[in-house]
């Protein structure tokens, strides 16, 4: 026989358990209500987090220090993409080594592999290359010219001025997928741009010191950086894009650098330091180590920090004052 007291006690315990259960589910329910976004590179993770704020749960794929052309396809990326409401990517086939292969097996109708562009196809795709003034479009598509990107140079994220355009595209993409919060994304975009755009103006002013400075880069990925800084990139350490330098090419490069007065070598951090050090020794040029994605180097985890760090490295190696 259950007494009244016991009944009350049982009722209290039941209510407490229910409250605890609901409390336990609450964060999950909240997380479930968020837009699930996967961004391919840390730059895009940062910008998407700024715009999505607490309305989006953003996960990344590449971590930053990798060569973007050789990011490993991990099965854990498949599960992220499988559940994504949106996939934010640089496009222009820069993610060709991992994104198409992952999208192919992720079984997400919102974001499938685009067989024609090595990109993403579906309502969840946010291509940040839309509207970019593409540089270095190949005149001939032959592998005799190295590992080319058929649509042109895809490394536009090295130009800080592309940041606002990418941010606007991401905000528009999130608003399209989550129209209820369109005003929030617009507000977050404005806040982000109000912070970023003055910095870009400041960097542009500082970069003026580099205008006309002749340089070589390791890989042919700095066209947009050259456009922003005014640096004249005359050649690459690689023989052709993706093709390791040969001794003959290096000898000719030394002659060219001496002949044209090239005083700056730009090494993307994922490439061999020894060859650049040898070149620097032969030519007396300074070496600037840059990242091609955010978080490639320490203290560059956001798009702002990444852009500023690259500029600082260039100014220092060129003997100019940095930010």
């Amino acid at each position: 026989m259950i007494t009244f007291k016991e009944k009350v006690m049982k009722n209290k315990i039941f209510r407490l358990a229910l409250i605890l259960l609901l409390a336990g589910w609450a964060p999950l329910a909240q997380a479930a209500g968020k837009l699930r976004v996967v961004a391919t590179v840390p730059d895009l993770v940062d910008i998407t987090r700024r715009i999505g704020a607490d309305l989006a749960e953003v996960q990344g794929l590449a971590r930053g220090p990798e060569d973007i052309h050789q990011v490993v396809m991990k099965p854990s990326f498949v599960t992220r993409l499988n559940k994504a409401d949106a996939v934010v990517y640089l496009g222009l086939s820069v993610e060709h080594s991992f994104l198409p292969g992952l999208l192919e097996v992720a079984r997400n109708p919102k974001a499938r592999r685009n067989a024609d562009t090595f990109g993403c196809l579906g309502p969840g795709c946010i291509d940040c290359s839309e509207g970019v003034n593409v540089m270095e479009k190949p005149e001939t598509l032959s592998r005799a010219e190295g590992e080319l990107h058929p649509q042109g140079n895809p490394h536009y994220n090295l130009d800080p001025q592309e940041g606002p355009r990418m941010a606007r595209l991401i905000a528009a993409g999130l608003a399209r997928l989550d129209p209820e919060h369109a005003a929030d994304y617009e507000r977050n975009l404005k806040a982000y741009l109000s912070e970023l755009e003055p910095r870009i103006a400041e960097w542009k002013r500082l970069a003026a010191a580099l205008h006309g400075f002749k340089a070589v880069s390791f890989h042919k990925d700095v066209a947009y950086l050259g456009r922003f800084t005014g640096i004249d990139f005359v050649d690459t350490v690689e023989l052709k894009p993706g093709i390791a330098p040969t001794p003959t090419h290096l000898e000719q490069l030394v002659k060219k650098m001496k002949g044209q007065g090239v005083k700056l070598i730009v090494r993307e951090q994922q490439y061999d330091a020894k060859v650049c050090e040898w070149l620097a020794e032969k030519t007396g040029a300074g070496i600037a180590v840059i990242g091609t994605m955010a978080n490639a180097l320490p203290d560059s985890e956001t798009f702002e920090k990444f852009s500023e760090r690259n500029l600082k490295a260039l100014l220092e190696a060129a003997g100019k004052r940095g930010p």
Partner: peptide, 11 residues
Amino acid sequence: YRWHPTKGGKY
């Protein structure tokens, strides 16, 4: 088993 260092994975 794969060891693919994020930094230096190219080499």
